[in-house]
Amino acid sequence: MMLDVRRINACGLNLEGCGVKKIIVEHLKYRYPQSTELALNDISFEAEEGEKIGFIGCNGSGKSTLCQALTGLVPHFYRGAYGGHVTVDGMEVMSSSISEIAVKVGIVFQNPFTQVTGAKETVYDEVAFGLENLGLPRGEIITRADAALKLLRIDRFKDQAPFSLSGGQMQRMAIAGMIAMRPRIIVLDEPTSQLDPQGSDEVYQALDDLSAQGLTVVLTEHKIEKVARYCDKILILQNGRSMAFDTPAQLFSAKNTEAWGVRPPVYTRVCRELLRPPAGVYPVTLAEAGEALANWEVIL
């Protein structure tokens, strides 16, 4: 019998759930039809089960295209020229259909208005729509839809028409519909762009909880403080190329990310201006910055 070496460490401890590669991207290249330039140019990275990965970079750097590549929309829907390999939860994207991938990978689009089906009369039915398409039993659909509506704090709007919701409420509805499908990997393209600050924190908290349960989360985000606080690793993209892939602290301490169009979190910026770090690593979160300001040497 073959031993799955990924799940047993040197001491024989069972590492079930740890170190399992959920996303493997190898030398991915992609060009949209009728375009002369590569939208993605030799991208490679891996994500493990339960990891939260943030894609950041300027608009047009390839973040959304890379999200589409994880869901199979690139290349199956958009077509174009494609090279390299993308594997999601053990499934090679190129040789799988969008519907097969959709069972494992859920996506929330950047603009929630484009995600609403327009075919359903209530928020509840909209959230349940994907579950109906999976052919789940009625009881299971109700259980999952109820839980997702509650998690995203929109259960009180369940009888309203989807298009009567505010932009932020609609964004939560889109996330609820996706989470209810219980994919193994979730991809969110700017998930909180229209949410109030507390709603935004709650979505990130929900993503934290889901990743703790083993879900792999991939998101794009312009709010760098949020990415630095919640993501385990960050991939910086510029003109379709991968510029860096590391933990937030290492990335914002060691690299000149401004050259790639990405400003470090405000906490890192002010601490760079004011403090001498004892270990060469700057803070990236509020709590870390507070600690550093209290204890590190100040540049007066």
């Binding site: 970079g57 300027c58 950047q110 700017e190 762009s193 312009h222 169009g261």
Partner: peptide, 9 residues
Amino acid sequence: EPTIAQDWQ
């Protein structure tokens, strides 16, 4: 909501 989808620039 003027800042939706805007990068640093």
